[in-house]
Design a protein around this nucleic acid. Sequence first.
DNA 1: TAACAGTATGTAATAATATAACATTTATGA
DNA 2: TCATAAATGTTATATTATTACATACTGTTA
Lengths: 130, 130
Amino acid sequence: MQKQHSLSKNQQIILDLIVKSSEPLKAYSILFNVQKKGINAPLQVYRALDKLVEIGKIHKIESRNAFIACQNSSCQISKATAFSICESCENVSEISNSKLSKYLANFADEAGMKYNKYNLEFFGLCKKCK
Amino acid sequence: MQKQHSLSKNQQIILDLIVKSSEPLKAYSILFNVQKKGINAPLQVYRALDKLVEIGKIHKIESRNAFIACQNSSCQISKATAFSICESCENVSEISNSKLSKYLANFADEAGMKYNKYNLEFFGLCKKCK
DNA sequence: TAACAGTATGTAATAATATAACATTTATGA
DNA sequence: TCATAAATGTTATATTATTACATACTGTTA
Ligand SMILES: [Zn+2]
Ligand SMILES: [Zn+2]
Ligand SMILES: [Zn+2]
Ligand SMILES: [Zn+2]
C-alpha cells in the first residue's frame, strides 16, 4: 500500500469541484467557483492544483489548460496519461487501455532516452458529434 | 503533390528564426527577436505561428508553450506528432517512428471515436543528463 | 511539552501567454 | 478589373501562471 495523502482544506475543496464537474475546468473558473468557500487568490488555486496533479488525483489537459479528475483508481497512471478530446463539444475522457500503456512504456525503453512520464492526447469527434 | 504554401513575409521571418534555433522558442521570445525586422506586436507573431502550425512547418510543444520546427519532411505528420522532452536540459526532439505512428493510428481506429490528430509527449532525461 | 521540519495558507503584485476588435493592404484567380 | 481570401498593422484587453514575503498548521522526535 502506498501512503494515503490526506488532503488539506483547499486541496479538498478544489478536488471536490473538479470531481463533480462533467468537463475539464480551468484555473480561473475554479477560482470563481470556490470564492464562496474562502479561496480568494489564483495562487491558492494553482498550489492546490499542483499538489493534486502531483499525487495523481487530477490531470492537466495540456492542450486546453484545464484540469480533469483522474478516472482511474491507479496512482501510477498519473505518469502515463492518455486522453481523447472532442474538438466539437470539448468533451474529454481519460483512456485506460493496458495494451496502449504497455506499448508506450516499452517504446520508451527502446529509445535511447530514459523516460519517466508520457502524455498522449487524441483529437477528433466524439460519438455525439460525428 | 500537395499545394506548396508560399509563405508570407512575417511567416517566413518567424519560420527562419525557429528553424535555426536549437531549442523550442516561446512566442514572446520570438517577438523580441524579430522586432528588428519590423514585427512589433504579439498578434503578428501568433498569427504567423498559427499558420505555420496549420501547414505543418512547426509544432507546438503543448507542455512548454513553445514552438519547434518540424524535423520530418512529411506534411502528414503534423497531425500525428510525438516528442521526447528532457526534463533537465529541456532539449526537445521530434520522434519519427513508423511503428509508433502506425500503432497510434490503429489505436485510434479501434476506439469508438473518429480521431483526426494526436500529440504525444514523452518526458525523461536525455543521454547527456542521465 | 518543546523544538523542529515540512507542508500549507494568505495576500499583493506582477509576469507570461494569448485573443478581440477594427482598419487597411496585398495576393490570387475568375 | 473585379471579387475574394489571406495577410498585415495597431491598440487594447483577456487569460494563464508565478514571485515574493509573511504567517500558520501538522506531524515527528527529543
Ligand atoms: Zn488518471
Ligand atoms: Zn463531441
Ligand atoms: Zn513534424
Ligand atoms: Zn537533457
